[in-house]
């Protein structure tokens, strides 16, 4: 993920028409002065440094520090700064697609939150990085609002009848992250240890943290599902 901006090194992968179109649009935009190559580079540096581990850190710190948790739930955007995320970056006005309103949704013994965007794929990139491919599929968008318990079960998450499943259809300017409950078996753990079990899927609400599953055990995203369009 480190060489995604301009002047990528020569590589063997087949050339796709999407790659051709993107580069053509970018070069024309730069030639016309619509934005600069430096803008693109700066945005790339910011985007490539986004990772859900910031979200994991916020949850772990909330489990250990009730005052931090209170601040995070009250004002997610402002409190993000305490873990190094400024929602106004990289442009000074936030990102065009995700803007600057961030809310953290707290799970309780009687409430489980899960996030979907049925209309597009709104996702809190500044704190979770780029969205997973499945989150963007029409399939997830179609089904999560109406059959949440079935879809959660497909992710391996089965919730009892007395737990309210609350689906958040992220359809306007707000961006959301789930704060799961601290699991049993983590007594006395450090913030780093706790952060390691808060996976990306926990922060979307399709998984729950477990003391025996760390993010490093979750399979890494392979690059490219099918290589884009084949020529």
């Amino acid at each position: 993920m480190s060489t995604t901006h301009s002047h990528a090194p020569l590589k063997e992968s087949p050339l796709t028409e999407f790659e051709v179109l993107e580069l053509a649009v970018r070069e024309l935009a730069i030639e016309k002065g619509l934005f600069s190559a430096d803008d693109h580079r700066r945005f790339a540096e910011w985007a490539e440094s986004r990772t859900y581990t910031v979200g994991s850190r916020m949850v772990a710190r909330s489990w250990l520090d009730p005052a931090f948790k209170e601040r995070l739930l009250r004002d997610g955007t402002e409190t993000s700064k305490e873990v190094g995320v400024d929602w106004l970056q990289p442009t000074g006005q936030g990102t065009p697609s995700d803007y600057t309103y961030f809310y953290v949704l707290e799970n309780t013994p009687k409430l489980h939150n899960v996030i979907v965007c049925t209309l597009c794929s709104c996702y809190p990139r500044p704190v979770l990085g780029m969205s997973p491919d499945w989150y963007r599929t029409p399939n997830y968008r179609r089904r999560m609002v109406r059959w949440p318990r079935q879809v959660l079960a497909e992710f391996g998450l089965h919730l009892p009848p007395d737990v309210e499943v609350r689906v958040h259809d992220s359809n306007q300017k707000s961006r959301f992250m789930v704060m799961p409950m601290r699991p049993e078996g983590t007594e006395g753990w450090s913030e780093d240890q706790l952060a390691a079990i808060v996976t990306r899927d926990c922060l979307i609400g399709v998984a729950l943290p477990r003391a025996d599953v760390t993010a490093s055990q979750v399979p890494k995203q392979p690059k490219g599902r099918n290589g884009g369009n084949k020529r």
Binding site: M1, T3, T4, H5, S6, A8, T16, F18, E19, E22, L23, V25, R26, A29, L34, F35, D39, H40, F43, A44, A47, E48, T95, P96, S97, V116, T118, L119, M130, P132, D133, W134, T137, P138, N139, Y140, R141, R142, R143, V145, R146, Q150, V151, E154, F155, D169, P219, K220, Q221, P222, K223, G224, R225, G227, G228
Partner: peptide, 30 residues
Amino acid sequence: LGGQPDTPVPFTEKGEEDWEMNTYLTCECL
């Protein structure tokens, strides 16, 4: 399309290809 019936599919993982990340960046810069 929320609520349209669909059959379960594997929820696959996939990282951004270069053109995908570059598309995001170009659109955001615009």
